[in-house]
Design a binder for these strands. Structure first.
Lengths: 321, 321
DNA sequence: TTGTAAGCGTTATCAT
DNA sequence: ATGATAACGCTTACAA
């Protein structure tokens, strides 16, 4: 910057003014400075700028699992929305581990992100408290924590799930296996509760960890126990369940019905196509980013509750109904 | 930091020494400083530290498309490797757009990442030159550019592709449709070349853009032109091709054979399972991160060339061979 | 309109 | 072993 200033025959203050679009500099000096910048290939140091202004124009996003297409879509939407407001997004991948999540949150805070988007790995409000204590704007995404005091953006699947439950019962299923998420996550509990509340003793619940392997194992147990329908509460566990069904040579929906929470681009391509509860991922991501930006700008955004939709495709024997 | 210093009755210099694990401070003072840090909940400002040390302990990763599971896996591997060396990764999503890619690269450079991992959107060496001119360590991943002067990490699929081509010809296919990537990307050209070189006039090539929609369109054209086998040169275009095949009610492999470059967890679950050329994504990501770290440490890592493997599963009529 | 200079939170040099 | 102090590259009163 000093070089640029010298080159243009001005002070660094003037260079800074030109850089920041201040009204002050004359068109002439602006011209000269711009020329010098061009010639020297000067690029401002964002670190120094941030140190001075205490604003990084950066949002932190800590997600549970980058390999989960659900979160990948969300990350993409967050990024799009943030970019359109001149913000950058730094993504942290927690891998469904509470420790790694905490590590990432702290790293991002240390780097002074202007705000944080968090998909909490567990219910524990401790980490959220820590962030809030630091005074950093925070929005929870997809999942919430006990007694959350910050805005939350999520999708409500209860209606779709009860509709699905009724449908399965109507189709004659009396032993329905639920592959649920961890009981210490809000989505893990809520989805399972919404679904089973209609079912009573017809439902049998096995908890997984939102990953493929746990889906296979849960499916195996439930099938062994005589389930005639399986509902996986997240797409990765759904993938695992599907694998187990195939491995056993069972036919969908004749031998066993299957439905999955979260849609995937390839679900319609299976035979039969998979019935799902689809979350509005893009809208969730965008809404979360908007809420966070509002918070950063001193507003108090409300919680956002979008609704997930049941998409019937045939894997629950819809054709026969 | 000043507060911590006061609290502990020392200077900020000593606090810094404790923080950075210098040998100097006595166990006693160290103790006092640590206590003060704890009590005040002090966290060092990474921006200030970086400004001073000119090291951010951060790697930049600019990938073509976060929604592409291939890149998501790579990102994950890069992050794992980087973390194990105490580095953070900032991911930029270029969306297969050269402009957005350039924007991200510049943003990351402005934030003074210690090194950059780039999956170039096109062949154009301009951006690479820009980075190199800035003296920032750079490693190319998956794709290369014309006359690249920096280390490149990629997978070689030519052997697998020629084996696949021979197999298809042996199975009697004389009209083989190739859904290739953009001709201005190294992977787009190389894969298509490797595959068609064995085929001669039996191959018909249509270029897509590495995304699902272009895969459907290319498949439609090729099928209309009488192709009896389709090979998609990336998993997203493969997904599109599969959709088109299903939409037309064609049966794999009887009506048409299909193979895809890049494996996916759900490919084995289709009926028949999809034959693929599988890239070692995790190793690619890790190798790239390692090369970059080596570069940062002043070494001169060699190019890394891993090999992709042909996985026969049935979608090319292997059972009948 | 422009320049001078202080300060953002660190680290590192040089004394002590 | 510890403490002043300058410096990192920038922004922003305040003065001119």
């Amino acid at each position: 910057m000093k070089d640029v200033a010298q080159h243009a025959g001005v002070s660094t203050a003037t260079v800074s003014r030109v850089l920041n679009g201040h009204a002050a500099p004359t068109p002439e000096t602006r011209e000269r400075v711009l020329a010098a910048i061009e010639e020297l290939g000067y690029r401002p140091n964002a670190l120094a700028r941030s140190l001075r202004t205490t604003s990084t124009q950066t949002l932190g996003l800590v997600i549970s699992d980058l390999l989960n297409p659900f979160f990948a879509e969300i990350a993409r939407a967050v990024e799009d929305e943030a970019r359109s407001h001149g913000y950058c997004v730094v993504i942290g991948n927690a891998d469904e581990s509470a420790e790694q999540e905490a590590t990432y949150v702290r790293t991002l805070l240390d780097r002074r992100v202007d705000g944080l988007l968090l998909c909490p790995a567990t219910d524990d409000p401790e980490l959220v408290r820590e962030v809030s204590a630091g005074g950093v704007p925070l929005v929870l995404l997809d999942r919430t924590v006990r007694g959350a005091t910050c805005p939350v953006v999520r999708a409500d699947g209860s209606e779709a799930l009860t509709a699905l439950a009724r449908r399965l019962v109507g189709a004659g299923h009396s032993r329905i296996g639920v592959i649920a998420g961890p009981p210490d996550t809000s989505t893990g509990r809520e989805r399972s509760d919404a679904f089973t509340s209609v079912l009573g003793s017809a439902a049998q619940v096995v908890h997984g960890d939102f990953r493929q392997e746990s889906g296979s194992q849960a499916a195996a147990r439930l099938i062994d126990d005589g389930a005639t329908a399986l509902v996986a509460m997240d797409n990765l566990m759904g993938l695992g369940a599907l694998g187990e069904i195939r491995a056993r040579g069972l036919h969908i929906p004749h031998d066993i019905a299957l439905a999955v929470f979260d849609d995937q681009p390839w679900f319609p391509l299976l035979d039969p196509p998979i019935t799902v509860v689809a979350q509005p991922t893009v809208e969730m991501g965008r809404a979360a980013a908007r809420s966070l930006l509002a918070l950063i700008n001193g507003q108090q955004p409300d919680d956002v509750r979008l609704t997930a939709k049941l998409v019937l495709r045939g894997s629950c024997g819809e054709a026969e109904l």
